[in-house]
Design a binder for these strands. Structure first.
Lengths: 342, 342
DNA sequence: AAACACAATGCAATCGATTGCATTAAGAGT
DNA sequence: ACTCTTAATGCAATCGATTGCATTGTGTTT
């Protein structure tokens, strides 16, 4: 069992010695590069047997140093606890698994300094590709990373245009417009409130824009007292609904820009004795699992995080394979899921 | 901007050249190992300036090859989409972030071959530590990994005893006993059903044992028709409740071994016109966010995945720092969260 | 029989950093 | 004046695999 010296595991040289060939040969046999250099079938067998006998595994680290490829990608997301993000992550991991890639994951919590730290980490630890959901990072930051490391990059973002960055985005603005317009034309609502988040969040801005556009398209005027901002949380959704119900004039429908707040709003409406959807209709956004558990089940706009993750990884692996390939921009649609709350 | 040759980024040798010192000196200054070897303050400054000017970042890969340390840990869990696991994961990532470690994550979906593949991956890609939630892997498998790679290991598991493996476990069996006993003694239930999962799952076995023990302790006899198994899903919980309500004699309370199934059961009960908790009380397990959104809010047993993740990382990093340290076994309790469904 | 092609393999440099063991110079002790 | 520390730095080997460029041997072509 003991190898040459005190090492606890076999290295390539040990295999070479046992198989009585040179290290080069072992490498060629085991790394598959032998496809381009001929090794006799007999030698191959001997090498494989020796490797097997010694329980040899190549050291990926050493290999990467030499080949400049790591078989590893990094993923930067806001928060793995959030269903939207972990579903994306899961899709990426599955794609990577298939390609025999390992996946590094970092959470940023939307914090700028964490995003920067991620970039720095990638500066030192070579990876073949990076998937990011940037919040504060600009195209310039990412470009610097690419210039220095040559890494392949795919991002989930709305406004990044760069020849070497593939981008995937979800059309949540358009989906919001469609949903609100549907409330107006199909469900005959005229008084529609909007529970959003601070407009400094791009996502907040986009969805609010979508809402405004639907109203305008249908000739309705937005009212200030029907635009309330929360902070993504259940409690803030509940508070927003309370405010709405206490307003001089109550809306008949409310579009909420994420499901958690929508559920908070729904429960408040129910607890205050309103019937949903008869007295007030509610639409959420994200289609998290809990929306189906509610009674009434929550109508919501589904994003397709799994598709997003798949698209991101597909783009990334294509770019890893061919760094020169022209950039792709992929739009993933959203879909209104009509359930009982409207 | 152009470095020595076609390389796109500076390497240690470039810095050495610019600062007019040897590579050794640069390394000592930048890697902090200079603590043990004296470098004059003036030289230090020169090196730092040169590094700064060139935008130099050390190549972690090369460093790892030499030092045998990677500043990277790997996490093997069942499924990042599951709140229990991703909360654990998040705690681990936060701990790693603080220690400046990167985190590799792999999902196994409880599949044996995926677990094995993970182990193989760690055989080739050196990491300093591994955190696992093994389902099929045995202590022997893990021991082999340790023997070969010397990696530090911490696991979330109930029956692994090994001098070089730290283990953390949640006492869900005891918690189940406590919860069921509470239903009997405090809530005066005599007819308590159990919706579980296949007993070949260890988790299913443990919680069922806990349930049985509570009944026995209180002198109650378990009844076959009140033990129904599902497959963790909402639908299977709903089906189980339907079966229970169609049984010749209805139970007055039901303990469900995860929240998703409990929610399915709850909704069925409500839809069939029963009042919860008056006609039937329901207790879930896990304390997922949705339990608080339900009406009635679901009573459930909380596990503390964040604490589990923290304990796992703490044990792991201690072992990385001192591989010889005696093993730790840490029990994380569970807690019954009484809400409206009981 | 000379020249050549090609299959099969080995040699040695290389990837980029770290570190044990010198080496040099300057000051301290006797 | 001579030996001894000690501070400051450099040399060169090393981590473990990959790969461009030989080299050797065997069969083919002319």
């Amino acid at each position: 069992m003991a190898k040459k010296n005190g090492r606890q595991h076999a290295i390539l040289a040990d295999v070479a010695r046992l198989a009585d060939v040179s290290p080069s040969t072992v490498s060629r046999v085991l790394s598959g590069s032998a496809v381009r250099a001929p090794i006799s079938e007999e030698t191959r067998a001997r090498v494989r047997a020796a490797a097997e006998q010694l329980g040899y595994y190549p050291n990926v680290n050493a290999r990467s140093l030499r080949t400049q490829r790591t078989n590893m990608i990094a993923v930067m997301i806001a928060d793995i606890s959030n269903p939207f993000y972990h579903t994306i992550t899961r899709a990426i991991q599955d794609a990577a698994f298939e390609q025999n890639f390992d996946v590094l994951i970092a959470n940023t919590d939307h914090i700028h300094s964490y995003e920067q730290r991620f970039v720095e980490a990638i500066m030192r630890r070579p990876v073949d590709g990076v998937i990011m959901v940037p919040y504060n990072l600009t195209a310039a930051d990412i470009e610097k990373l690419i210039d220095r490391t040559g890494v392949a990059v795919a991002v989930l973002a709305h406004r990044i245009e760069h020849p070497r960055i593939d981008v995937v985005y979800a059309d949540d603005e358009g989906a919001t417009t469609d949903a609100v317009r549907w409330l107006i034309t199909e469900k005959k609502h005229q008084k529609i409130a909007f529970i959003g988040v601070n407009l400094s969040f791009k996502v907040g801005q986009r969805r609010y824009n979508g809402y405004r556009r639907a109203l305008e398209d249908c000739g309705l005027r937005p009212r200030d007292e029907w635009f309330i901002t929360g902070n993504f949380s259940y409690e803030s959704g509940a508070a927003a609904m309370n405010a709405l119900l206490d307003a001089p004039e109550r809306p008949t429908a409310v579009f909420v820009c994420n499901d958690i707040m929508a559920i908070g709003a729904l429960n408040v409406a129910l607890e205050r004795g309103l019937r949903v959807p008869e007295d007030i209709a509610i639409v959420g956004f994200d289609n998290i699992p809990a929306t189906q558990y509610m009674r009434p089940e929550l109508t919501t706009v589904a994003q397709f995080p799994h598709e997003i993750g798949t698209a991101l990884s597909k783009a990334l692996f294509e770019r890893i394979a061919d760094p020169q390939r022209p950039r792709q921009t992929i739009k993933i649609g959203c879909e209104l899921i009509v359930r009982q709350s409207t």
